[in-house]
């Protein structure tokens, strides 16, 4: 019985610390994909499987500035079935997503901002599957 208790505690400790370490590590890996763009911030998402329609999402908001081309990179954590879908909205108006019309998911897309203001970002996982992901917001250096 003591051995069982020891393993329970050990598992809880390891699981807890790994969750943080993994998401930070994923940010570092994902940042390698931004190319010549300049990193601004990252958004970490982890959602459980859900049968609710539409699937649950995590929401963020961010100020984007006129005259800047922003880049959104999406990276999924290994070991989860869910693939992240990022939507960029101006209030409730959908401006763009990494999900194309044919359903395929892009790793990155850009957004040329012409209106300074607060924009909303929603991240969910395809078909409400369990998933963990990181999205990186950067801006492209246009010469």
């Amino acid at each position: 019985m003591k051995r069982i208790i020891f393993y329970i505690i050990l598992t809880l400790f390891l699981f807890n610390n790994n969750t943080y370490a993994q998401s930070d590590e994923l940010v570092n890996v994902c940042a390698l994909d931004i190319g010549n763009a300049t990193y601004l911030k990252d958004f970490k998402v982890k959602l459980q499987q859900s049968n609710v329609k539409p699937p649950p999402c995590t929401k963020f908001s961010v100020v984007l500035n006129k005259g800047t081309i922003y880049q959104f990179n999406v990276c999924d954590a290994a070991g989860y079935e869910g693939k992240a879908i990022l939507k960029l909205l101006d209030h409730s108006k959908l401006l763009g997503s990494n999900k194309k019309g044919d359903g395929t998911l892009m790793k990155a897309f850009g957004f040329q901002c012409q209106k300074t203001g607060v924009y909303n970002i929603q991240i969910s996982f395809n078909n409400g599957k369990q998933g963990a992901a990181v999205a990186i917001l950067s801006f492209m250096n246009v010469k």
Partner: peptide, 16 residues
Amino acid sequence: SREINGMLIIVTNDES
């Protein structure tokens, strides 16, 4: 939308 350097870029035509 348009493509710049191989990446899909969404251009909003709302302007401030």
